[in-house]
Design a binder for these strands. Structure first.
Length: 623
RNA sequence: CGGGGUGUAGCGCAGCCUGGUAGCGCGCCUGCUUUGGGAGCAGGAUGUCGGAGGUUCGAAUCCUCUCACCCCGACCA
């Protein structure tokens, strides 16, 4: 692929200017002629770029009646149908002209708010030398998610999945004194992560557009101040983009560090589960949300331990159904392995293991699930009937907090076809070696902040902010001299936004059965003019052209549908592409001096006087 | 990487079981009619049936291998 510079009206002008001075004389003459012909236009361009309005006949609209079969998610289907994107390969998408306009809108808002927040833009290489990653210790950690490439000298590089290493390298070279701090660098750039399973179109693509920012500080206090600053900037960005979102406490994952928040666009199709308390401002990713210990202490034993036959019943659901007991009275045992050591994790039957929490159990990280063979070998019993009673020594029993407070419970008997009822800690088996929070919270759990109970919703992660502290600066020697002349590692924060993902997430929230409903801030064009009979009626053509020109002059981006299509086709296309405002221009209305306005989100259209259309629309757009 | 599935025209699909050399709808091209909610009529173009090998007189169809893509599980903006 050739490297083609991005062009908006402004850049095209400067680009052509430079080019013309470097090209052949005949070409230069041509350019000069052109320039002389329209000097006022070019000057205007430099002062303030005009909105890039378009006519459909000159643009490239490429809509589909049916979405390709591989598209599952509504946003993915609509993006394909509306011609915003086209797939090249797994996780690789072309942003078509219409889609690129949307992407640029998001980018512009992100850039504006980052600048407003005091961050400074730079641009780092997409391709990075392996040495930097070896130095930070992440060459192996990131592993197969990194697209590794070799140059002609057989040297290792990767296509950057993120830029902590590069920016830390910049910081250690450029920053020597506390006087140069703090600073927050950001870029908006294509990243590549070789995801195990790309899916949902640009929602989880391998190549995607990301805004990544990295801040450097003399101390933790200042890092926290900037973290808060970024938190506020992110809130402004997502608010301006018209997204329904929620900021939640998050796990730090592979990036590392201490504090972290994720910003999620709320959508049922989201890949993350979020817990929040309506009674407070508590919100956390379920990965992290704490399941607090039950308030009431364990009740005393009332039943004898009894072995009951449960042939063929290998799940908690089946066992309690057979015994006529509630699921909350059962305990399931999960066999996890750290190297060749077995951990038996106990969870209430209706609860689910949280693998991130499990990874924090002392001695268990990293863990894997035991194979059937290992379970039989260590417990002498098939999976489905395993339990914590009478197990050999050397096995660590980890009880979830909820389990630790249970009495008279049901669990596997470590004998195929049998379970135990009326089981009690202390009497029938030792107290668990470890009691820990190892489950996912469920709706109704008390909020960890003690206020209200938790509810769950789903979200699409579009932003993530981290306090990295000195993880990278220490590993890579990014130090500065403080006021006392002492060398200190810089405190670091990093802040990401999935720019391309935002487009998909927005569509998840803003669509109906006719297509996309972009908020104004993100729409590829703000107004569509549907000219009915543009090629047939001089009156329609004149009215449509005049309105197009007037709105454009007033700074509004307009798409004029001047195709020789039937009205239904044009209406359907405009609705599919999500342009928020539509004006229909036809002979029928013009006869009575009227145009017709339709908002994409409103059911009813309304007539507007043709003569006052421009001020009417401008007022409408402003409000 | 494990489990499941699909590859036939630009898109959506049928044909495959029961081998006989490919079809439907939409889209596309031409002409005429039509023009306020995805038009009608007539004519037309487009497929080495994902690829390779095998069985057979003959393979989209049966067999083997392979590749790509999609869906479900562990990563992340």
């Amino acid at each position: 692929m050739e490297c083609v510079p991005r062009r908006n009206a402004r850049q095209t002008t400067t680009h052509d200017y430079h080019r013309s001075s470097a090209t052949s004389r005949s070409r230069r003459r041509k350019h000069c002629g052109l320039r002389r012909a329209r000097p006022p236009y070019r000057i205007a361009v430099f002062l303030s770029p005009p909105p890039s309005s378009m006519r459909v006949s000159q643009f490239f609209l490429s809509t589909l009646k049916e979405a390709p079969a591989e598209a599952e998610l509504i946003s993915h289907r609509l993006m394909l149908r509306a011609g915003l994107i086209r797939k090249l390969g797994s996780g690789l998408y072309t942003w078509m002209p219409l889609g690129l306009r949307v992407l640029r809108k998001v980018e512009a808002i992100v850039r504006e708010e980052m600048n407003r927040a005091g961050a400074v833009e730079l641009s780092m290489p997409a391709v990075q030398p392996a040495e930097l990653w070896q130095e930070s210790g992440r060459w192996a950690v990131f592993g197969p998610q990194m697209l590794k490439i070799k140059d002609r000298h057989d040297r290792d590089f990767c296509f950057g999945p993120t830029h902590e290493e590069v920016i830390t390298d910049i910081a250690r070279r450029e920053i020597r004194s506390y006087r140069q701090l703090p600073v927050n660098f950001y870029q908006i750039q294509t990243k590549f992560r070789d995801e195990i399973r790309p899916r949902f179109g640009v929602m989880r693509a391998r190549e995607f557009l990301m805004k990544d920012a990295y801040s450097f500080h003399t101390g933790f206090d200042d890092l926290q101040r900037e973290y808060r600053n970024m938190y506020d900037a992110y809130s402004r960005i997502f608010t301006r983009l018209g997204l329904q979102f929620r900021a939640v406490a998050a796990d730090t994952g592979a990036i590392g560090g201490t504090g972290s928040h994720e910003f999620h666009v709320l959508a049922d199709s989201g890949e993350d589960a979020l817990a929040f308390s309506p009674a407070s401002d508590y919100a956390a990713n379920v990965e992290l949300a704490e399941a607090v210990a039950p308030a009431s202490p364990r009740a005393g034993a009332t039943q004898p331990m009894t072995k009951v036959p449960t042939p063929g019943k290998t799940t908690c659901e089946d066992v309690v159904a057979l015994l006529g007991l509630p699921l909350t009275q059962s305990v399931k045992a999960l066999a996890l392995m750290h190297e060749d050591r077995l951990f038996l994790l106990l969870l209430r039957g209706d609860h689910h293991l949280n693998e991130i929490k499990a990874g924090k159990i002392p001695g268990l990280d990293p863990f894997r699930f035991a194979t059937d063979g290992e379970i039989v070998g260590k417990l002498g019993c098939k999976p489905g009937y395993i339990g914590p009673v009478g197990i050999p020594s050397g096995i660590t029993v980890v009880a979830d907090r909820a389990v630790a407070a249970m009495s008279d419970f049901v669990c596997g008997a470590n004998e195929a076809g049998f379970h135990l009822t009326g089981v009690n800690f202390g009497r029938d088996l030792p107290e668990p070696t470890i009691v820990a929070d190892i489950r996912n919270v469920v709706p109704g759990d008390p909020s960890p902040d003690g206020r209200g109970s938790l509810e769950l919703c789903r979200g699409v992660e579009v932003g993530h902010i981290f306090q990295l502290r000195t993880k990278y600066s220490e590993a890579m020697g990014a130090t500065f001299l403080d006021e006392q002349g002492q060398s200190q590692p810089m405190e670091m924060g990093c802040y990401g936004i999935g720019v391309s993902r935002i487009v998909a997430a927005s569509i998840e929230q803003n669509h109906d059965d006719r297509g996309i409903m972009f908020p104004d801030a993100m729409a590829p064009f703000r107004i569509a003019l549907v000219a009915i009979g543009y090629r047939k009626s001089e009156a329609v053509k004149q009215a449509a052209d005049a309105l197009h020109d007037a709105l454009t002059a007033a700074g509004v981006e307009v798409l004029l549908d001047d195709r020789d299509e039937r009205p239904g086709v044009m209406f359907a296309d405009i609705e599919l592409t999500g342009i928020p405002h539509r004006v229909t221009i036809g002979d029928r209305g013009l006869k009575s001096g009227e145009l017709e306005y339709q908002n994409r989100r409103e059911g009813q259209s309304q007539p507007i006087p043709a003569a006052e259309a421009v001020p009417w629309l401008l007022e409408r757009l402003a409000g």
